[in-house]
Amino acid sequence: DRIFMTRTEALEFLLKAHQTAVDKIGHPSHKQTPADHAAIEALDRLLLDVRARRVDQFQINASAAQIIVTD
Rank of each mutant, 00 (worst) to 15 (best):
D1L: 02
D1I: 08
D1N: 08
D1H: 10
D1R: 04
D1V: 06
R2T: 13
R2K: 13
R2S: 09
R2C: 06
R2I: 11
R2A: 09
M5A: 01
M5Q: 01
M5F: 05
M5G: 00
M5N: 00
M5P: 00
M5R: 01
T6K: 06
T6Q: 04
T6D: 05
T6Y: 03
R7K: 04
R7Y: 13
R7P: 04
R7V: 14
R7T: 07
R7H: 09
R7W: 12
T8V: 15
T8R: 08
T8Q: 14
E9Q: 14
E9K: 09
E9Y: 03
A10D: 00
A10M: 01
A10Y: 01
A10T: 02
A10C: 03
L11V: 09
L11Y: 08
L11N: 02
L11R: 01
L11F: 05
L11D: 01
L11K: 01
E12I: 08
E12C: 08
E12S: 15
E12R: 11
E12T: 09
E12Q: 13
E12D: 13
F13Q: 03
F13E: 03
L14N: 00
L14A: 00
L14F: 01
L14H: 00
L14K: 00
L14S: 00
L15H: 11
L15W: 13
L15V: 12
L15R: 14
K16A: 10
K16E: 10
K16F: 09
K16T: 10
K16C: 06
K16S: 04
K16L: 12
K16V: 10
K16Y: 09
A17F: 07
A17I: 08
A17P: 00
H18A: 04
H18M: 13
H18E: 01
H18N: 02
H18G: 02
H18I: 14
H18K: 14
H18D: 00
H18L: 13
H18Q: 03
Q19T: 06
Q19R: 13
Q19C: 03
T20N: 13
T20F: 07
T20E: 14
A21V: 05
A21R: 04
A21W: 09
A21C: 05
V22N: 03
V22K: 09
V22M: 14
V22C: 06
V22G: 02
V22Q: 05
D23S: 05
D23A: 11
D23P: 01
D23C: 07
D23E: 13
D23V: 08
D23T: 07
D23I: 07
D23M: 06
K24D: 05
K24W: 05
K24G: 05
K24C: 05
I25H: 06
I25N: 05
I25F: 10
I25G: 04
I25M: 12
G26K: 15
G26N: 15
H27T: 08
H27D: 15
H27N: 14
H27C: 05
P28K: 07
P28G: 09
P28D: 15
P28T: 05
S29H: 07
S29Y: 08
S29E: 14
S29W: 06
S29G: 13
S29K: 03
S29I: 03
H30N: 10
H30S: 04
H30F: 06
H30R: 02
H30K: 03
H30Y: 07
K31M: 15
K31L: 15
K31Q: 13
K31R: 02
K31G: 15
K31H: 15
Q32N: 13
Q32H: 15
Q32Y: 15
T33S: 14
T33N: 14
T33H: 04
T33C: 09
T33E: 15
T33L: 05
P34Q: 12
P34C: 05
P34W: 11
P34V: 09
P34A: 15
P34L: 05
P34F: 10
P34E: 10
P34K: 09
P34D: 13
P34S: 08
P34T: 05
P34Y: 08
A35S: 10
A35I: 05
D36F: 05
D36G: 03
D36C: 03
D36A: 04
D36V: 05
H37P: 03
H37C: 08
H37W: 15
H37T: 14
H37E: 12
A38T: 08
A38C: 05
A38V: 11
A38W: 09
A38P: 03
A39S: 10
A39C: 06
A39I: 13
A39Q: 12
A39K: 09
A39W: 14
I40W: 02
I40G: 02
I40P: 02
I40D: 01
I40S: 02
E41V: 12
E41W: 08
E41Q: 12
E41S: 10
E41D: 10
E41C: 07
E41G: 07
E41H: 11
A42T: 13
A42Q: 13
A42G: 06
A42R: 13
A42E: 13
A42D: 10
L43R: 00
L43T: 01
L43F: 04
L43S: 01
L43H: 00
D44R: 14
D44K: 15
D44Y: 15
D44V: 14
D44H: 14
R45T: 07
R45E: 06
R45H: 10
R45K: 14
L46K: 01
L46H: 01
L46Q: 01
L46V: 03
L46A: 01
L46I: 07
L46D: 00
L46C: 02
L47G: 01
L47E: 01
L47N: 01
L47R: 05
L48N: 15
L48F: 12
L48Y: 12
L48K: 15
L48V: 11
L48C: 06
D49I: 02
D49V: 03
D49K: 04
D49Y: 04
D49N: 06
V50L: 06
V50R: 00
R51M: 13
R51I: 14
R51V: 10
R51Q: 11
A52C: 14
A52Q: 12
A52L: 14
R53A: 13
R53P: 01
R53Q: 12
R53H: 15
R54E: 06
R54H: 08
R54L: 03
V55T: 07
V55K: 08
V55F: 02
V55W: 01
V55Y: 02
V55Q: 06
V55I: 14
V55L: 05
D56A: 09
D56H: 14
D56S: 15
Q57I: 14
Q57L: 08
Q57F: 12
Q57V: 14
Q57P: 00
F58N: 00
Q59W: 12
Q59I: 10
Q59A: 05
Q59V: 05
Q59T: 09
I60P: 01
I60S: 03
I60R: 00
I60Y: 02
I60H: 04
I60W: 08
I60A: 04
I60N: 01
N61P: 07
N61M: 09
A62M: 08
A62F: 07
A62T: 12
A62R: 08
S63H: 13
S63Q: 14
S63T: 09
S63Y: 14
S63L: 13
A64T: 13
A64E: 13
A64S: 15
A64W: 10
A65T: 12
A65W: 10
A65Q: 11
A65K: 10
Q66F: 13
I67A: 01
I67D: 01
I67C: 01
I67T: 02
I68A: 04
I68D: 02
I68R: 03
V69D: 03
V69H: 01
V69W: 01
V69Q: 01
T70M: 14
D71S: 09
D71L: 07
D71I: 14
D71M: 09
D71F: 06
